[in-house]
Design a binder for these strands. Structure first.
Lengths: 246, 246
DNA sequence: CGTGTATTTGACTTTTGTCAATGTAAGTGG
DNA sequence: CCACTTACATTGACAAAAGTCAAATACACG
């Protein structure tokens, strides 16, 4: 399913419902992508409140969904290649968050009228599109649990574990880690803490031999410790096949 | 639209997309409900990991979605009448959280094969079902922001503001407050803190004249203060018409 | 009226935030 | 090549928020 016939959408739901879509539907999906764009520097792709008539699929790189409040930035979701970043805008129309690129990214735009046609004529594909937004919500819920339950080190461990698994679904994870273009400030924004405290936590996890995060590279040193510290149970990712962290 | 012809589903999306569904579709929706059940005592309706072939719509009362971790209960979502609590189970099949009743509730069950038929033959209704799960996700995101950004008093203020508005959408809010069957322990579970600290916060908000929460009744004393303390901007609820908190 | 649950309070510890400053690595222009 | 800039990472000292443990009230319900 990682064939190159669908360069823009081949990673969509990869690792989740590998066999749920037929070849024909996969091709249909690829055909939904209208224009493609690349950003090499950090860029705000969409703003909260924007009324949109197309949705964004991430082809390459990392994007975040953020909500600004009192001048502070809060990351409410992170995306890896294959994620349909703001498919929810199809029905909601108005965005409740910004979409920003991190590092260098390539994104595709899908006009909403094409999604409407899918909804009218392709129930199976429509169901898969719906499914992908539900996966998103399941990840949101896990983040809520993580923020309610874990202290800063656990939150970071959970984030690392989740990203490692999600990147693995789309064949972008390494055996012992993955590359991650997030600064400590951004890690802090995703874990609900400050960059200064995040620095303490990064240092601690490095010194205790759990995970090393430096120079844009994450190296997992102790899978078991990572999993336990982050109270990580990958069931909420609804993945198929073998998992990075049991 | 609050006509009694649809006793089970008349509150579905009330206050949001009041006019999005035709009379015919409203009737169709009501027809989706198979059995109806009532629980008068706290009850776990569904468990994490359950594979289900029907979804639950809340007709009356309060239900919570919870994730247990290390023996602690974490509320990841709260529902008011009209909410399609676990419509996501239609596509996900397996639940990533428990569904529990709080106080006395009445719920309806919708078999998934009926939803499948809607998806195949009723694109407008299908879109509204999808839409309702997206509203859920938008609320999840706001909770993530709230947990990342606010301290315990802000979190409680936000929760109160949100519930007040959501109950108002379905005509269940009073002019100065609403009834809420949550204990301080449950408020704590929804705000990511401990019951002891939540008690301090409840006391503080009462003494500072922001909101009084006692004996299952919430009385808003100072709308403006509540809104500011909770950094509450109701845009994420995608409501129509006038709002409780501007 | 007693019993269990929910609420409240106090004392103390741990975690995290805040402020201020320093260190470090990569890139830029002279 | 070096001074300079800039962004990111790191550290220390202190304050504020929240967790923990223990116990005392208050309250609802049979």
């Amino acid at each position: 399913m990682t064939d190159d016939s669908c360069p823009y959408t081949r990673r969509f739901l990869q690792g989740r419902s590998r066999d749920a879509l037929s070849k024909r539907e996969r091709t249909l999906l690829e055909g939904l992508v209208g224009t493609v764009e690349r950003f090499t520097a950090p860029h705000t792709i969409l703003r909260r409140g924007d009324v949109v008539d197309q949705s964004t699929i991430l082809i390459e790189g990392t994007v975040a969904r953020v909500i600004y409040e009192d001048g502070k930035r809060h990351i409410v979701a992170l995306h890896v290649p294959g994620d349909f970043v703001d498919l929810h805008a199809f029905a909601l129309k108005r965005l409740d968050h910004d979409v920003v690129s991190i590092g260098s990214v390539q994104i595709g735009y899908v006009p909403h009228d094409r999604i409407q046609k899918v909804l009218e004529k392709e129930p199976t594909l429509a169901r898969m599109l719906w499914y992908s937004t539900l996966l998103d919500a399941a990840m949101h819920r896990e983040w809520i649990m993580k923020l309610e339950h874990l202290s800063a080190d656990g939150r970071l461990a959970h984030l690392v574990a989740e990203l490692w698994q999600r990147l693995d679904f789309v064949d972008l994870a390494g055996e012992n880690g993955f590359s991650l273009p997030l600064t400590q400030q951004e890690l802090a924004d995703a874990c609900g803490t400050t960059s200064i405290h995040m620095n303490r936590v990064v240092k601690k996890l490095r010194e205790t031999g759990v995970v090393d995060i430096s120079r844009g590279q994450v190296t997992v040193l102790d899978k078991q410790a990572l999993k336990e510290l982050g109270a990580f149970d990958p069931a909420y990712l609804y993945g198929q096949g073998p998992l990075k962290l049991t």
